[in-house]
Write a protein that binds this DNA or RNA. Sequence first.
DNA 1: TTAATGACCTATC
DNA 2: CGATAGGCCATTA
Length: 108
Amino acid sequence: MEKNTFQLIYEQVRKIPKGKVATYGQIAANVGNRRLSQVVGFALHSNPDPEMIPCHRVVNRFGETSGSFAFGGKDRQRELLEAEGVEFTADGRVDMEKFMWDGLYKEE
DNA sequence: TTAATGACCTATC
DNA sequence: CGATAGGCCATTA
């Protein structure tokens, strides 16, 4: 069982604590290469395992999804995050300054 | 197999 | 300071 890039990405996404959000670049950095930011989005876009891949906890650098969502709708994301305790701004974004995942670069 | 695109980010002009 | 272009990795057609 080899760990593909997708698996690594899913690992980070699953490790996101409830009530917080992480950015693609952030996850990519934790995976190993920050350039994988796009691949992270791709992994979630494909969303082969939505049951274990909380895409709603993953947002871009601005705190919002790019419009697409594999769960059922971006509106669903706001509901899910709000249910987790995440606050949203009038801009319709998540308060990254306070909810951005703290687990940065976990070097072993 | 090659080419192009992609839920991005960073650096530069 | 603001906007534009590029780049990187992987997937899909």
